[in-house]
Design a binder for these strands. Sequence first.
DNA 1: TATATTTTGAGAGCTACTCTCATTTCATGG
DNA 2: CCATGAAATGAGAGTAGCTCTCAAAATATA
Lengths: 213, 213
Amino acid sequence: MNPMTAARSPLSPTDRPQLGLRERKKIKTREGIRAATYALIKEQGYDATTIEQIAERAEVSPSTVFRYFPTKEDIVLTDEYDPLMLEELRNRPAGESWLDSVRHVMHLAIEANNREDPEVARMRAHLSVQVPAVRSRMVESMSATGRLLREAIAERHGLDPDSIEVRVYAMSFIGGLMEASMYWAENDFEGELSDLVDRALDVLEHGLPTENT
Amino acid sequence: MNPMTAARSPLSPTDRPQLGLRERKKIKTREGIRAATYALIKEQGYDATTIEQIAERAEVSPSTVFRYFPTKEDIVLTDEYDPLMLEELRNRPAGESWLDSVRHVMHLAIEANNREDPEVARMRAHLSVQVPAVRSRMVESMSATGRLLREAIAERHGLDPDSIEVRVYAMSFIGGLMEASMYWAENDFEGELSDLVDRALDVLEHGLPTENT
DNA sequence: TATATTTTGAGAGCTACTCTCATTTCATGG
DNA sequence: CCATGAAATGAGAGTAGCTCTCAAAATATA
């Protein structure tokens, strides 16, 4: 949303070089649909907002909305940090502990996501808590991220990325991230999301606070 | 499905004592809808099976189907072991380690679920892998179980059930269970699900196999 | 400017799901 | 056994998300 800052920050969507009119229009349409959706949801709530209304406000036809986004939930959620996160993960110093690498990358992702548009970031988290359909779409998307994570983990530890061990390990990180995000939204976004993620990762690393082993 | 064996096993739905004709009919209808659904899905697949077809085969009206099950996915999934699992968890000996308690209860749940109708158990796992809508409904239902788990954990460790630590901890178990189940289905149900759950729990307890710390 | 390619809009169609209301089915007291 | 009240059912209309098709409009290319 803010190309000035986004351009220099890590983990932000790639800048668009020289694009034809066609491509530029597509991006504009896409962002128009998103903007219309956010505005309408803010006004009326998620369920009360129909695709027809979104299309109307974005000045496109309903067909076009579905051409740009497979489902209504995707309009709210889609954003692809995954490949960037993965690369960042691979580029971490070899000596660094795995948990620290993950911690680092998650912090980066949160920061990037937040800088791009803090209000939207909160709305997403909020809807993930409130609207089951949105939440489940988010879980799906996180699972996809998890599948990528597996490969990074397997690579680093010399394990089979499809083994159940690696799967469970990867999923625990994704789950921790999700819980952190939902906890944040449920508690009115007080405090920093990064701190919550840290606490989540601590639990995965050391178990519950009272278990001093 | 099999009252003879189900009656004596732990973690099985409560037997129904003396019920009026009305209640008995309701149970029959409910099971009829389920049976019709399973049969149709087996024949045509999940997506190709419509509520109308289900209603027709179960000899009820479509309205009735929705009266018994809020969504199509719920016809396939719903089954309430949660309260029983919770009680079982609370009744574990005080000295037993938390991980062992969870392991024990999960084994019981798997066993019960499997004894009731192995084929249905597999179909569920299979659909959770294949059909996004079913999977996401299952995730939701598991999250609900997770919320119950939190209380048991908090009770045992003297922590706040709503703290992020307990949430993450509970979620890691649920996630492990889900991964095990999906892994099982994805690998054609070879081996025992309980063994997979054990491996999942081992990862949560000790980290990945190569990390010998 | 002419032609090929993409993108869009219009509209029909499907299905999950909701709501309402009249009808049927069961429960209960006399 | 019957009358009355309550609950379950069926029929039908309606909504919204989503898919598909096809012709028109916009853009690229020569």
